[in-house]
Structures are given as structure tokens and as C-alpha cells.
């Protein structure tokens, strides 16, 4: 009797895992495979009606997208920006995260909510009226505009992630280090750093990725000449729609971020996964 139930459970489990794999295949693997296929369509041989498969495959499209589109510039802009944004965000967030994670004070829960405000204002509203503000203030540098926009709208993530890290530091370790006469720097190095380091790096990476992926501010504030990878993709999906090129740019946008995200997840494994939420 008992044996029958458990073998049925195993069977159910296998079936459901199989089902999940099938859903995954159709929802993710297959569309990506098609994108890869489209990106390999040879530029000189169109894949047109009524052909079911592309006539000629080659890597020439990738070469061409790389040499003639603004993609190298967009990649440079995106990564440069993301580096500046993640450093700026971390610098601004760390002391606030310390206060939220390690101190008790009046109005803490309200402050906590306040830090989340950028998440509840729709991105395009921030983007449009921030650009109005920049016009009003005669700020012409698109890079500076996008940098400020990204930094502020990604601060909540950095504060949240680092607050958790700071809260995990054990007070007895700090006290022990102090009792042994360690200098503040040594206390930081021995009691804080080992605990907050994974969270710190994860915050760095997640803000980096979110900045690369951010579309609204880059598109509205950066227009017309500060282009990032998402804005170039948007143009390839809209006005300049050429399906094979869009496929190539899509893959370029996704692949490096997946790698970075996997690293971040590894770092965050101990922390609460629900923190990494809320991007559109």
C-alpha cells in the first residue's frame, strides 16, 4: 500500500517536471533558438515568403551589425554608464543602509517606505518630467542626465540589498573586536567586511544590470544622441525594424546580463531572493 502511493508520487513528480520542461522549452528555449536562427540569416539572401527556412546561413550579419550599427558605441555607453551608476549608487546607499540595518531610530518604517518611492512611480513619468526639469535647468549633457536618473531610480535596490547585509553583521563579533582593542578600521575589516561583502558585490552587479537594462530614462532623457543597448534595440524593433538585426542585438543585450545575474545570484544565495524584484 505504502509502496504504491510513493511510486505514484514519483510518477506524478516526473510528469510535472516533464511538463515544466516542456513549458520552459516553448516559452524560452525555442524563441531564443529562433532568434539565433534569424540572426544567422545571410544579409545577401533574404528569408522571404514562401521559404519556410532561411536559404543561406552565415555569421556575416553579426559582423555587419558590429561594424555599421551604432552598437559598439551603445555598448560602450551602456557599460560605462552602468559602471558609474553602480559606483555612485553604492556610495550614496552605504551609509543609509548602515543606518537602516544597524540602528534604531524614530520613523524607521516610514523612512524605509520612502526609499522605495522610485519603484512606484511609473518609469516613463520619471523619464519625461525629469527631462522637462533638465530643459528647465539648461542641462544639456545627456550622459549626466541619464546618470542622475539611473542613480536615483536604482538607489532603492542598493539600499535594500545592503540594509539586509548590514543587519546580518553580528553585534557580538563587533563587540569582541572592540574589546580586543581593534581600531575602527580593523573592526570594519574583521567584523563587517566578510559579512557585507557578498551583499555589496551583489548590489553592485544588480544595479549594474538594471542600469544596462533601463529603457525609459535612457530613451527619453538620452534622446537623440546618447544611445544605449535597449534604445538601439527599440529602434530596431520600431522605426528601423529589420528582424535579423533585431535578433542579433537582442542576443547581445541578454547574454552578458544572464552571466552577470548568475554571479549575483550565487553571491546572494544566503540573502532573501525577494529583494531582487520590481524591474519592468
Amino acid at each position: 500500500m505504502h509502496g504504491i502511493t510513493s511510486s505514484r508520487t514519483v510518477w506524478y513528480r516526473r510528469l510535472s517536471i516533464g511538463l515544466a520542461l516542456a513549458v520552459f522549452f516553448f516559452a524560452l528555449a525555442l524563441p531564443f533558438a529562433l532568434a539565433v536562427l534569424w540572426s544567422l540569416v545571410d544579409p545577401a539572401h533574404p528569408w522571404a515568403y514562401p521559404a519556410v527556412l532561411p536559404p543561406v546561413l552565415s555569421l556575416r550579419r553579426w559582423l555587419e551589425v558590429w561594424t555599421t550599427s551604432a552598437l559598439p558605441q551603445a555598448l560602450y555607453n551602456s557599460y560605462m554608464l552602468a559602471a558609474c551608476v553602480s559606483i555612485a549608487t553604492l556610495l550614496l546607499a552605504s551609509s543609509a543602509a548602515y543606518a537602516l540595518g544597524r540602528m534604531e531610530f524614530v520613523g524607521k518604517s516610514i523612512i524605509h517606505l520612502l526609499t522605495l518611492v522610485p519603484l512606484i512611480i511609473p518609469n516613463f513619468i520619471s523619464a519625461i518630467f525629469f527631462s522637462a526639469l533638465l530643459i528647465e535647468l539648461d542641462v544639456y549633457s545627456r550622459f549626466l542626465g541619464v546618470l542622475i536618473g539611473h542613480t536615483v531610480s536604482l538607489l532603492p535596490y542598493a539600499i535594500r540589498l545592503m540594509t539586509v547585509s548590514f543587519a546580518m553583521v553580528r553585534q557580538d563579533l563587533i563587540d569582541a573586536a572592540r574589546d580586543l582593542g581593534a581600531s575602527p578600521l580593523t573592526v570594519f575589516r574583521t567584523a563587517y567586511l566578510p559579512v557585507i561583502k557578498p551583499g555589496l558585490l551583489a548590489a553592485l552587479i544588480i544595479v549594474f544590470i538594471l542600469s544596462i537594462e533601463e529603457f525609459a530614462i535612457s530613451y527619453i532623457v538620452g534622446a537623440p544622441d546618447f544611445i544605449t543597448v535597449p534604445t538601439i534595440l527599440y529602434s530596431y524593433l520600431g522605426y528601423n525594424f529589420i528582424r535579423p538585426n533585431a535578433a542579433a542585438v537582442s542576443l547581445i543585450l541578454v547574454v552578458p546580463n544572464v552571466v552577470l545575474m548568475l554571479i549575483a545570484e550565487r553571491l546572494l544565495r544566503s540573502a532573501d531572493p525577494a529583494i531582487v524584484t520590481g524591474k519592468g
Binding site: A93, S95, L100, M103, V152, I159
Partner: peptide, 28 residues
């Protein structure tokens, strides 16, 4: 004293958020 200290520490992170968001929403 500690509350004051906490608020001072919060400033660099919180001020940009409050300033930016109130300016943007205020602008709209």
C-alpha cells in the same frame, strides 16, 4: 543623539530620492 546620527547617515541615500521624486512629480 542616535536618532540624529541615523538621520545624518540616511541623508546621502535618502536626499537624492526625495529631491528627485518630489521634483519630478512636482514638475508633472
Amino acid at each position: 543623539n542616535q536618532t540624529l546620527k541615523a538621520y545624518l547617515l540616511l541623508l546621502p541615500g535618502l536626499l537624492p530620492i526625495i529631491a528627485f521624486m518630489s521634483l519630478v512629480v512636482g514638475m508633472a
